[in-house]
């Protein structure tokens, strides 16, 4: 692989890897303990089966451990939201409602104020 130089690093800092619709599942120790791997599998299998075009991504822990598994959904035409306590059934609902019909799912959205 090519060794990077300064220009490569600066160019990379201007890229945006988050284009298109995506579902991001928190896969770290606390998430996995709460069943995040199953949740991730449901998203991967079901979106494929239904032919929904969406990237399934992974990320670390955002810190809201009481609400794991956590899933961030970004779909065209809708603001980005974070769902918490997403077990298999909630995952299926998110696919059906949010991804397929553009309707947000009641009772699972966590939206905490945070400055970055």
């Amino acid at each position: 692989m090519k060794k990077l130089n300064k220009e490569d690093i600066l160019a990379a800092s201007k890229t945006n890897p988050y284009t298109g619709d995506y579902v991001k599942v928190g896969i770290s120790t606390c998430g996995v303990a709460a069943g995040a791997q199953d949740t991730l599998n449901v998203f991967e299998e079901e979106t494929k089966r239904l032919g929904i075009k969406v990237d399934i991504r992974r990320c670390g822990c955002i810190g809201m451990c009481y609400a794991e598994p956590l899933v961030e959904v970004s779909a065209a035409g809708l603001p980005k939201v974070t769902y918490g306590k997403v077990d298999k059934n909630v995952a299926l609902e998110i696919i059906q409602e949010h991804l397929a019909h553009g309707r947000l799912v009641d009772d699972y959205i966590f939206d905490m104020p945070m400055n970055r």
């Binding site: 918490g84 306590k85 959205i109 966590f110 939206d111």
Partner: peptide, 9 residues
């Protein structure tokens, strides 16, 4: 859309 949230902090 009016959606029930679980926690808004």
């Amino acid at each position: 859309q009016a959606v029930r949230a679980s926690d808004l902090g």
